[in-house]
């Protein structure tokens, strides 16, 4: 925002309230009401307003209080933002970022705990980013804002409290479409994203105690997907577990698994294993919620399974 006058932030509670999760703390003070705008609760409307503003040269950052509510705006994201450049024969690009928390929170039940990355990743024309560390979030968000295409930038509510080192360099960015190996290993690969990356790292630590060396690959962006890095890791370890907070059915894990099968079938020493959220809406009860979500124990068990341990 400091760099480009045309960048503005618009969403519910982003200004005076400083963000429902305080993500926009201090922005109103620094950039004023013109560029940090509290919106009425009108997701379809403000998503479309953002796309229209992007058509004529602004670079909107549109916040959804959570991605659950982006469902009301999918028409404008999918039918307008993702298609405009194409159906105008290249005349109208849409440099916009839709951001907010995605996935589970703490006991908020079915309508507030959904991981929707596979919805948006499905569509050519969109880019989908899911950072797992503070530094990645910073570097990737800057790239997303500078990108000339619509970017779905998915944060995670449970991660808002996590702390991490962040480079001070004002020019620090991380390109979209480059995976990061969060931990090197040689016996098995875990492909994790967003909240499941810290879980995978914990699982890897536990497995290390048993002498199992696990590599954790974080694609960081789902679209474009850095499948090459994943394939290289599979070629090295020959075993894969994919961990995700979304449902498994038609999910990103299914896509990664299919691509591994297409490109590295001969390298696999065991079937690809997925750990996803239960195939049920999210329950409220704490014990059921825990059952529904991936956790360290489930990941450890899955890695043992692909290693036939």
């Amino acid at each position: 925002m400091q760099r480009d006058e045309n960048v503005f932030l618009l969403g519910e509670e982003v200004a005076a309230y400083q963000g429902a999760y305080k993500v926009s703390k201090g922005l109103l003070e620094e950039f004023g009401e013109k560029r940090v705008i509290d919106s009425p609760i009108t997701e379809l409307g403000f998503a479309g307003l953002g796309v229209g503003a992007a058509m004529v040269g602004l670079r909107p950052v549109i916040e959804f209080m959570t991605f659950n509510f982006s469902i009301l705006a999918t028409d404008q994201i999918v039918n307008s933002a993702a298609k405009m450049l194409y159906m105008s024969g290249g005349q109208f690009k849409i440099p916009i970022v839709f951001r907010g928390p995605n996935g589970s929170a703490y006991q908020v039940s079915s309508q507030h705990s959904q991981a929707l990355e596979s919805w948006y990743a499905h569509f050519p024309g969109l880019k989908v980013v899911m950072p797992s560390t503070a530094a990645d979030a910073k570097g990737l968000l800057k790239s997303a804002i500078r990108d000339d295409d619509p970017v779905i930038f998915m944060e995670q509510e449970r991660m808002y409290g996590m702390k991490g080192e962040v480079p001070d360099d004002p020019d620090f960015t991380i390109p979209l479409g480059v995976a990061d190996i969060k931990r090197e290993g040689k016996d098995a690969t875990i492909v994790a994203r967003s909240l499941t990356v810290p879980l995978a790292l914990k699982a890897a630590e536990e497995l290390e105690k048993e002498g199992v060396s696990v590599e954790v690959v974080d694609p960081r962006t789902i679209r474009p997907l850095d499948i090459d890095t994943i394939i290289r890791s599979v070629q090295k370890t020959n075993r894969v577990v994919i961990v995700e907070e979304s449902h498994a059915f038609c999910g990103v894990g299914a896509e990664i698994s299919a691509q591994i099968m297409e490109r590295a079938f001969d390298y696999l020493d065991a079937p690809v294993k997925r750990i996803s959220s239960a195939d049920a809406p999210m329950p409220y009860a704490k014990n059921l919620e825990q059952l529904a979500l991936p956790d360290v124990a489930k990941i450890v068990a899955a890695v043992r399974e692909v290693l036939y341990l």
């Binding site: 307003l49 004529v56 404008q76 039918n79 307008s80």
Partner: peptide, 25 residues
């Protein structure tokens, strides 16, 4: 000319955003 749009009513928020941008700039 910012287009013909195929979703009934879909162009209305878009045009509102175009007006927003005109005012912003």
């Amino acid at each position: 000319f910012l287009g013909g749009h195929g979703i009934v009513g879909g162009q209305i928020p878009l045009a509102t955003g175009v007006a927003f941008a005109a005012k912003y700039k």
